[in-house]
Design a protein around this nucleic acid. Sequence first.
DNA 1: CGAGTTATTGATCGCGATCAACATGGGTGG
DNA 2: CCACCCATGTTGATCGCGATCAATAACTCG
Lengths: 268, 268
Amino acid sequence: MTRDSADADSFFGEMRPIGAAVAAKLNHHAPLDAAERAALDAFLGRNVRRLHDRALLIEQGVAPTEISIVLEGWACRFTDDGGGRRRIVALYLPGDVCDFDAFLTPAMDQSIAAIGGARVAGINRSALNELARKQPKISQALWWESLAAAAVQRAWTVNVGRRDALPKVAHLFCELYFRLSLVGMVEDGRLSFPLTQIDIADACGLTPVHVNRVLKELRAAGTLSLADRYLTIHDLPAMTSDAGFDPSYFPLHSVQRTPANAPVITPV
Amino acid sequence: MTRDSADADSFFGEMRPIGAAVAAKLNHHAPLDAAERAALDAFLGRNVRRLHDRALLIEQGVAPTEISIVLEGWACRFTDDGGGRRRIVALYLPGDVCDFDAFLTPAMDQSIAAIGGARVAGINRSALNELARKQPKISQALWWESLAAAAVQRAWTVNVGRRDALPKVAHLFCELYFRLSLVGMVEDGRLSFPLTQIDIADACGLTPVHVNRVLKELRAAGTLSLADRYLTIHDLPAMTSDAGFDPSYFPLHSVQRTPANAPVITPV
DNA sequence: CGAGTTATTGATCGCGATCAACATGGGTGG
DNA sequence: CCACCCATGTTGATCGCGATCAATAACTCG
């Protein structure tokens, strides 16, 4: 079974610009004007790959030649567990950069694979240099993005630590709900959800069997529905309460940020 | 009990430059010449704070006005667990930057506290801007550092996930051993170790009682000694084997990196 | 010397892992 | 088109690691 969602290609009816999700994300850090959005689209459109379910974007041990940005679909970063199971350490949604460290590491410490089919833009070193030179605001927003990703990674470290199973799963769902909301991919509490129960288990540090039981419990409580690769949150307050979810770890309030308040160590 | 180690101030006999550890770390990314080291020292020396055990560098919910760099001693990033226990998500050793996101977040999502006494340099926004302008190589190395920290954070996410207790603790020790080696703070397998068993538990997602039992086991096997705030690794191969530790997640092989190989999205 | 934190050991409990069986459903090849 | 295969989902039964509860020792600091 390939799990490629039938409508992955047409989720936005091909009407949305190629970098819509990326622009939406970066916009939370620094508002982009029409010209900048167009430039971003042009950069992202240069080198687009379509990947099927489980296809590797980047393999552990290899030195990448480009950084990858998810345009459509999901991807996950993982290490192999030796027993065929994966230890998922991060999930990448539309608009996310998978590997900020691409040009730093001599070899990737983990692999990244598509989940349920994805479209990914690759940006090589010279293109990125060009982007940094011509579009400083965009490259600055990318720097902020890397710090936001670090905050999410810390939240995962907390979540995967010693907690009961149900809060773990609920927290994952809350985070995904929140992150997808930021790029306009949640409608009426309903979102495309390509993860299998095995994937959820690998991301939460649980067994698939127990994830199944947790889901049963969440369904019985009327908190959510999960079927046919779609997740619907029926009771968001119950969900966030179960999860102990506090979205304040997303450093996104850039809208209120004044220029004088701008960060440093950024491309000039 | 304050746990301030008696010789924290004189570990290097006050002979080493103030930013020795920082320079050692950054040197792994981009070799610094004498002038750059001097400039770094000057910047770090402008605003140094001395903190006692458990003193907060930065408190959750507050917007920081400066980034903090550990000069001596250790610090930890944590969230309060509601029950007086802490969930430690990161440890900061001499040379580490605690909060790259300081100028990005409207409010810190976690607190950072000294462990066993520490000396910390604060760099405010204008100073950091000045550094970026006058010392591009240093600020570039800081950008790499932030990516290296992200790799460590991912390793923690893996370690804290579903693994047996002993490997968890062993992995933490291996990582600390490795990181301290990088700044020249391990001698003959022996290192200053200010963490209590409670701290180890909070960092590994275990209970202090069980950490105690794991330590007992590691001591019985002759793998390590841990007493009087000093850790000695007697059998490093056994240790790394127990831990399943693979240091390749540290992106440090910059020595072999050619200029043409330099990363992008960096300050010009 | 008393108070509080840390370290240590024993006894018991329970959550989630593990083992096992079966259902389902889509994809593939005859 | 049907038969088969294999990944995924579901449920039950049992086991064990690490949590929890409890008591004591050692040690630091006021």
